[in-house]
């Protein structure tokens, strides 16, 4: 491809309508406004281990993804903006933009740690808690298979 063709194709691509991407701020600010999150939630982020140890997760807790209507643009008050930016700063991970509830926001970092290769389709369709349980089950199953291999 010569330079002229390259320039033409570049310009054509730039002119094309781009789908409106999902933005972390939009998601987080909407959840902050919807659930009226405040300083307590920021404290909770710093102490996620304690929170999840109190709430032991088992298969009975498997639940569907919560519905959250996201506007294309989000504007929030000054306080909500500060909280949203603080959450984005503390839980900085690629799964955060797919969260639909405060609990999913808390789980997003753990889920990313456990499996960073989940697709956006999976993240949009399933609750993060369920995905995390699934991931743990897979790990346990792999350990069992490994142990069984040693016995046999």
């Amino acid at each position: 491809m010569d330079l002229a063709q390259n320039l033409r194709s570049d310009r054509a691509r730039q002119k094309r309508k781009q789908p409106h991407g999902r933005k972390v701020f939009n998601t987080v600010s909407c959840i902050v406004r919807e659930y009226k999150l405040g300083e307590d939630f920021l404290k909770l982020i710093d102490n996620t281990d304690g929170y999840f140890s109190q709430r032991r997760m088992d298969l009975r807790q498997v639940k569907g993804k919560k519905v959250l209507e996201l506007p294309p643009f989000s504007l929030v008050s000054q306080d909500e903006y500060r909280i949203a930016m603080a959450i984005t700063g503390k839980l900085d991970n690629p799964y955060l933009q797919f969260a639909h509830s405060p609990e999913e926001m808390l789980l997003s970092a753990r889920l990313y740690e456990a499996n960073p290769s989940l697709t956006s389709q999976d993240l949009l369709r399933h609750d993060f808690g369920t995905l995390l349980l699934c991931q743990r089950a897979k790990e346990e199953l792999a350990d069992l298979v490994k142990g069984l291999g040693k016995i046999i």
Partner: peptide, 10 residues
């Protein structure tokens, strides 16, 4: 009126 924020406005 109170100003509403997003990253660009901030």
């Amino acid at each position: 009126v109170p100003l509403l924020f997003d990253p660009d406005i901030a």
